[in-house]
Computed example of a mutant assay.
Amino acid sequence: MKTIFVLLGIFSLSISSAQHGANELYRSGEKYNSTVYQLNNGEHQRVSQTKNEAVYRIKILNNVKTDAYIVTFGLNQEAKSVKECNAKINQRIQGFKSAAKNLGIKEDEMYVDFITQNKIYDYVSETQGSQVKVNQVDAGFEIKKNVILRFSNQVSFDDLVEKASDFEIHNIIKVDYVNLNADKIYEQMFEEAHKLLQIRKNQMSKHIEEGSEDEPTIQISFVALSPTSQYKTFQAFETSELSYSNNSRYSDKHVIRQEERKSKTFYYDGLNPQGFDKIINANTPVVGMQYVMEITMTYRKKQ
């Protein structure tokens, strides 16, 4: 009987910010998708047996440096008319694109996405005696556009951010990570899994009961994990406690307490290495994509 292979491939290639964390991180404090949570929690059961079958599992983690980035810059422009507004924002975009080309980014690696065009309003007031009248008036138009750029590791992200600020582009919406050789990564991990599989099969041969199938059913899952889903946020500070009484019945003084601003930051918290049979590039400090391959081999009793 031939071995039955079942491939369960999950390519989560909406890969996002990590080493270059962008403003997208502010959207949520802790963003763990269900796939990451499921892989990162619970014990790795290497062997499980019932009266009808024996199941053996191998799980490999691979930390991979990214090949390229896709960064989204957001900008807006206000003016009295749509024509004037569009002309001003396009001038800023063209200036930024020219600066990006000088850094080594090609024209076909840049794209301008038109987001919104809307009217804006303001208020004017006039005083008539003791009455102040406030009216809402038309203040013009606002246009928002995104500039999306793709660049490799050879381009300095810091230089790109500085060039963007020269044209009053300060909103880094998100940064996506791209790996161009997913097939090669899969092949490498499969080879490592195959080596472990041979060792596991030799160990299993002593325990496989008589009457089981000669060849097992093998399931392979392959998951690419986004760094964005693996960021957490925290604040670190110590503060004093203040008790006060504000009873206007006995005093005309009021206590106003003003808090200092506490900075919030983020940190990358990748998959817990515990529970994996093999970790490739385990010692790298680089924040990048994490790939998980899990092979499940099932021996069933012959019917």
Score class of each variant (00 low, 15 high):
residue 115 I to Y: 00
residue 278 K to T: 08
residue 125 S to D: 03
residue 167 F to Y: 15
residue 200 R to P: 00
residue 270 G to K: 08
residue 289 M to V: 13
residue 28 S to Y: 15
residue 165 S to G: 07
residue 148 I to E: 02
residue 202 N to R: 14
residue 151 F to M: 11
residue 45 Q to V: 09
residue 27 R to H: 09
residue 76 N to Q: 13
residue 101 K to A: 08
residue 232 K to T: 05
residue 191 E to Q: 15
residue 174 K to S: 14
residue 84 E to N: 15
residue 247 N to D: 11
residue 127 T to I: 03
residue 4 I to T: 04
residue 64 V to Y: 09
residue 60 I to V: 15
residue 38 Q to M: 11
residue 190 F to L: 15
residue 270 G to D: 08
residue 144 K to C: 10
residue 259 E to T: 10
residue 109 E to S: 05
residue 125 S to L: 00
residue 17 S to K: 02
residue 69 Y to R: 12
residue 102 N to F: 09
residue 39 L to I: 12
residue 122 D to I: 01
residue 235 Q to E: 09
residue 111 Y to F: 12
residue 151 F to V: 11
residue 68 A to D: 05
residue 285 P to W: 08
residue 257 R to F: 11
residue 51 K to M: 09
residue 167 F to I: 04
residue 92 R to G: 02
residue 135 N to Q: 12
residue 44 H to A: 06
residue 112 V to E: 10
residue 275 G to V: 08
residue 111 Y to Q: 08
residue 115 I to V: 15
residue 154 Q to G: 09
residue 6 V to P: 00
residue 17 S to Y: 11
residue 173 I to Q: 12
residue 91 Q to Y: 10
residue 56 Y to Q: 03
residue 72 T to W: 10
residue 56 Y to N: 01
residue 286 V to H: 02
residue 15 I to H: 04
residue 259 E to C: 04
residue 72 T to R: 07
residue 168 E to W: 14
residue 209 E to F: 06
residue 235 Q to W: 00
residue 98 S to A: 14
residue 37 Y to H: 06
residue 178 V to W: 03
residue 256 I to T: 11
residue 149 L to Q: 01
residue 132 V to Q: 13
residue 180 L to T: 15
residue 232 K to G: 02
residue 132 V to D: 01
residue 114 F to E: 10
residue 217 T to Q: 13
residue 128 Q to V: 13
residue 8 L to V: 01
residue 170 H to N: 14
residue 96 F to G: 04
residue 107 E to K: 07
residue 258 Q to A: 04
residue 140 G to T: 12
residue 90 N to W: 05
residue 258 Q to N: 07
residue 119 K to I: 08
residue 117 Q to C: 10
residue 61 L to G: 02
residue 27 R to E: 12
residue 178 V to D: 11
residue 16 S to Y: 09
residue 90 N to D: 11
residue 269 D to G: 05
residue 77 Q to R: 01
residue 111 Y to K: 10
residue 81 S to D: 14
residue 233 T to W: 02
residue 210 E to C: 07
residue 110 M to N: 07
residue 5 F to Q: 02
residue 121 Y to P: 01
residue 119 K to Y: 03
residue 65 K to L: 07
residue 84 E to P: 03
residue 181 N to Y: 07
residue 221 S to R: 06
residue 13 L to F: 02
residue 273 P to K: 09
residue 225 L to R: 12
residue 285 P to N: 10
residue 236 A to Q: 14
residue 265 T to S: 13
residue 47 V to S: 08
residue 164 A to I: 12
residue 61 L to A: 01
residue 97 K to D: 05
residue 113 D to V: 03
residue 148 I to C: 10
residue 14 S to R: 09
residue 152 S to H: 08
residue 36 V to Q: 12
residue 35 T to R: 01
residue 47 V to F: 09
residue 8 L to R: 04
residue 171 N to Y: 07
residue 267 Y to Q: 07
residue 40 N to M: 00
residue 247 N to A: 11
residue 37 Y to T: 15
residue 112 V to W: 07
residue 120 I to E: 08
residue 151 F to H: 09
residue 175 V to E: 12
residue 282 A to W: 03
residue 93 I to C: 02
residue 135 N to T: 06
residue 85 C to F: 06
residue 278 K to E: 06
